[in-house]
Design a protein around this nucleic acid. Structure first.
Length: 436
RNA sequence: GAGGCCGUAGCUCAAUGGUAGAGCACCGGGCUGUGGCCCCGGGUGUUGCGGGUUCGAGCCCCGUCGGCCUCCCCA
């Protein structure tokens, strides 16, 4: 059997890498402007962390994690998301005593053992942001604003309608159970009308039924009790203030009372940002509040909100895929992979000069490539062209002796002669030509 | 985890159960002082892998691995 990458794990070829790098840099820029601090947490954590945070009965923990016993007989899990690890970090290092708000972001791979599809890999990258602070709707609105800001940042105009924001509230430990009970009894009454999957969901995770795409289920759900009718005063007020805060930031959103979460720790506000053209996996960013998680993991009471952007999905939404072109053209990025200058040397004695000269040029910031073997001028130019070089510098033994070189613009097919007095002078002149 | 479609050269794809091909890419040459264009030459392959049926399998059957899509779930 041929050796190949593990299923659902992808290589990033140079042309892929530039796309992700471009997006990551855009995101990083906005994170920093909002005063988020970049951190790194381990890829591997104790299994217990995810069981306690995400929830023992969730699908993620029950069947999607990469978990194993290590040589010390410790149960470890490749992180399926970043929030739990960041909470652990905050608690372990006592970061909660630092001035609020604590704003962190991290970028890295997550792992979930699911069936791969477009926009759904087993190793996938997330840009994850978390804010630990007081429960405040303005802060919350700002976090959502930032999510949209990041997503739209690579686009030429902010006015596009590529991304849509959906909003909901899950209530808090005080009001959610009441709603859950009401929903549960409603669903039990309509058990015969929902699909097979939902029959199971009713007892396991009734909120999920709200999210079912089955037409019959949708019909049932349309008459179901609404969370908004069960919210306690605090949650109601908070949600109302959040909506007003979003409006004051000119953020368009649609309320989706059927929006739910696969992770147990979320309370009150949750949101999702969907993108067009992604098929079934169209959620590019998701997040919400998790006001009790830090305490549940052994820390102090510390309300928090966060979200994660799926890097690969974000990339597809902007650059498109094999079938559909996106709004951004990846070719403008791959051009950056080409050398600025290719040094052509004719005659074996000059090869050594090529190595020295290219080094000096690199120190001046030029991306250089050169010849290491004696080859015909034609072969070297061909090579320079194939590598996508913008310019070539041609030095033959005759020119070398007469202290002159030919500088050729491959894109314009024009060339001129450069006289020089020593290597450093040549370097200076070439740099000037290339950089304009 | 369930279902469906698919897997042939580096890439995109052909090939009634009867000798594995094309375009692009790649390599060499025309062309030892000027790239792209052109011309000539080269197929670069364990038809994903393993079995089975058959005189004969890229094609049919089973299994397996992988990809895509839907479900499940989620970023």
């Amino acid at each position: 059997m041929k050796l190949q990458a593990v299923r659902g794990f992808k290589d990033w070829l140079p042309e892929d890498f530039v796309k992700y790098e471009y997006l990551i840099e855009k995101a990083r820029l906005w994170c920093k402007l909002f005063n988020f601090k970049e951190i790194k947490i381990p890829i591997l954590e104790k299994t217990e962390l995810f069981v306690r945070s995400i929830g023992e009965v969730t699908d993620i923990v029950q069947k999607e994690t990469y978990s194993f016993e290590d040589r010390n007989k410790d149960w470890l899990t490749l992180r399926p998301e970043a929030t739990a690890g960041i909470c652990r970090m905050v608690i372990e290092h006592g970061l909660y005593v630092r001035p609020k708000p604590l704003k962190f972001f991290t970028i890295g791979p997550m792992f979930r053992h699911e069936r791969p599809q477009k926009g759904r890999l087993r190793e996938f990258f997330q840009i994850d942001l978390e804010v630990f602070s007081e429960l405040n709707p303005y802060l919350e609105a700002e976090v959502i604003f930032l999510a949209l800001k990041i997503l739209k940042s690579p686009l030429p105009k902010e006015s596009d309608q590529l991304y849509t924001l959906e909003l909901n509230t899950l209530g808090c430990p005080e009001c959610r159970p009441k709603y859950r009970e009401a929903l549960l009894s409603f669903l039990r009454e309509h058990k015969d009308e929902v699909c097979e999957t939902c029959k199971e969901r009713i007892e396991r995770n009734p909120l999920r039924v709200l999210d079912c795409k089955n037409e019959g289920c949708k019909k049932v759900v349309s008459g179901s009790p609404l969370i908004t009718d069960f919210l306690c005063e605090d949650c109601k007020t908070h949600f109302q203030e959040l909506k007003e805060a979003l409006e004051s930031l000119d953020i368009e959103f649609s309320l989706n009372p059927r929006l739910v979460r696969g992770l147990d720790y979320y309370v009150r506000t949750i949101f999702e940002i969907k993108a067009k053209g992604l098929g079934a996996q169209d959620t590019v960013c998701a997040g919400g509040r998790y006001d009790y998680l830090v305490k549940e993991l052994g820390g102090p009471e510390l309300p928090a909100i966060g979200f994660a952007i799926g890097l690969e999905r974000w990339a597809i939404s902007l650059f498109g895929d094999e079938e559909n072109k996106g709004l951004l053209d990846p070719n403008t990025l791959t051009e950056k992979l080409c050398p600025d200058l290719y040094l052509v040397f004719l005659g074996k004695p000059l090869i050594k000069q090529g190595v020295i000269l290219s080094q000096k040029l690199r120190e001046k910031g030029l991306r250089c490539e050169t010849t290491y073997e004696e080859k015909s001028l034609k072969a070297q130019l061909k090579n320079a062209d194939k590598l996508g070089a913008n310019f070539v510098l041609i030095l033959g033994e005759k020119e070398w002796a007469e202290k002159r070189a030919v500088f050729r613009d491959l894109k314009k097919s024009a060339q001129k002669e450069i006289g020089f007095d020593g290597l450093d002078d040549l370097v200076a002149k070439v740099v000037k030509e290339v950089k304009g």
